[in-house]
Simulated scan of single mutants.
Amino acid sequence: MKNPLDPAELNTALENVHRAGMPGLFAEVRDGDQVWRGAAGVADVATGRPVTADMRHRVGSITKTFTAAAVLQQVEDGQIGLDTPIGRYLPRLVPGERGDAITVRMLIDHTSGLAEYLPYAYPSLKAFPALADTGPQSLDDSRLTRFHPAELIEMGVAAPAVGAPGGTPGVYSNTNYLLLGELLEKVTGTAADKYITQNVIERAGLQDTELPAGPYVDGPHSQIYEAWFGMIDPPRDYSVYDMSWVGTAGALISTVTDLNRFFGKLLAGEIVSRSSLEQMQRTVPVISQEGKTIDYGLGLHPMAAPGRETFWGHGGTVWGAGALAMTRADGERQVSIAVNLQRWNSLDSSGRPQPHPIDGALAALYQVAMYGGAGDAPR
Rank of each mutant, 00 (worst) to 15 (best):
Y371M: 02
D31H: 15
L144G: 13
D208N: 15
L139S: 00
W319K: 10
R58P: 03
Q342T: 15
Q34M: 14
G156E: 01
Y177A: 09
G156H: 01
L259F: 06
R30L: 13
P123T: 10
A338M: 12
L152Y: 00
T134Q: 07
L341K: 09
R49P: 10
A69L: 12
N345Q: 14
H301F: 15
Y366N: 11
G250P: 02
M22S: 08
D208F: 09
P378N: 04
S346N: 14
G41L: 07
Y296I: 01
A39I: 07
E185P: 01
L180A: 08
Q281T: 14
G316K: 07
A213T: 15
F26L: 08
L179W: 00
R105E: 11
G307H: 08
K194Y: 04
A204F: 01
T134A: 08
V35E: 11
T103M: 11
H18G: 06
G156R: 06
L25Y: 04
D242V: 03
I253G: 07
M231G: 10
A158N: 15
A338I: 01
L118Q: 11
E182N: 02
V162K: 10
L82E: 09
V217A: 09
G205V: 07
D44L: 04
S244I: 00
H301I: 00
I86N: 09
A227Q: 12
V71E: 03
D330C: 05
G373S: 02
E116Y: 07
G230T: 04
L184F: 01
V29H: 04
G166E: 02
A164K: 14
T65C: 07
W228A: 10
Q367A: 15
G351E: 09
